[in-house]
Write a protein that binds this DNA or RNA. Structure first.
Lengths: 184, 184
DNA sequence: TAGAATAGAATGACCGTTCTATCTAATATA
DNA sequence: TATATTAGATAGAACGGTCATTCTATTCTA
């Protein structure tokens, strides 16, 4: 049986706790208890804590893209604004302090591990996403626009920690509109 | 003797290690060894690891503002651009992966502790800094402009992790110019 | 000679991981 | 239908290591 309820519970609880307290700030004991699962059940589904972190990141990334894709219609007038809006709604739903992927890059940097690779991969994909969108829309300086919008999303996530997702998103949408117009 | 060489060494080494590996990712043993100091010397100067973290943050904040102030002349044509440039140079000098203050907020969130208060205080001050600047320059929507520029700085720091400080700063300066012009 | 700084051991808590032994429930066999 | 087999899940102890913190006893230095 490939699907497992316990595995899902573990991933859900682990993602919540890792996001709130950090990867190093949460012990497996806590995860096991809150997921109502035995120690060996965790190790039956995941090789190690690192492997659990990996799977959590993969799951979160998958959910992020599903969410973005459901909002952005790439044939719309300005898919860029839709993407910024979608990111804002994601923040409101699932983020209140920083970004799990940047945190993973920081926490596991320099050890040549899978975790950092997954996190960096996600960020690279985000940049690539905007690059393709800008090219498809025939924007001048499409390369620059993509970088600018990515920077905007990252800034919005950071600002969420300080002023909340709603306010942060209002500002980023306003800025995105100006930038997209500028790029003619 | 208020000044102490050992204390300075500890703060410098701790800041480097905390920034690179995270507060929870660095043990006191490592700090002690790299600072060439005995265990009790650390506890002679700092009450606890948390207290060491606090002092590291205070020192870093102080250095940040010194750096910014040395670049920004508030009577210049556009002190905003100077501030963004200064932040970029700070990143190039002292940051290559994320922001130590945001990381502190994340790592020590929800425990009602001094560390989070210091980190949040720094961020509040940054926002306040731009608000005053925008007011002094008689900008329309000065409140919005301050938020936008703060978001820009936060975004630049995050992007530094992904594309390096130079590139990230080029983009944020370009964006800042547009925003400041818009705010007439 | 007094005050710091030293090295290093001791402490108790927690960490990730493994092990053992028991239990349950579904599946395959007769 | 009744029985045997198998796979998962369970609780909890045990392991070796590291953590922050404290203690002790010695050495340096002003």
């Amino acid at each position: 049986m490939s699907y497992s309820v316990k595995r899902e519970q573990l991933l859900r609880v682990a993602e919540d706790l890792f996001y709130q307290y950090g990867f190093r700030g949460v012990g497996l004991k806590q995860i096991i208890q809150e997921a109502n699962v035995a120690t060996m059940t965790l190790y039956n589904h995941f090789n190690s804590k690192d492997n659990l972190v990996e799977e959590v990141l993969r799951q979160r990334e998958s959910r992020y893209w599903t969410y973005l894709d459901s909002y952005v219609e790439s044939d719309a007038d300005s898919p860029f604004i839709l993407a910024v809006e979608a990111h804002g709604k994601w923040l409101k739903k699932e983020s209140y302090q920083g970004d799990m992927f940047l945190r993973a890059i920081e926490d596991y940097s320099g050890e040549d591990n899978e975790i950092e690779a997954i996190a960096r991969g996600h960020k690279a994909k985000l940049l690539q996403y905007f690059k393709k969108l800008a090219q498809a829309k025939g924007k001048d300086h499409d390369h620059d626009l993509a970088h600018q919008l990515t920077l905007l999303l990252e800034g919005t996530t950071s600002m969420t920690t300080l002023i909340g997702a709603e306010q942060a998103t209002e500002h980023s949408i306003a800025m995105a509109r100006i930038l997209v117009r500028q790029a003619s």
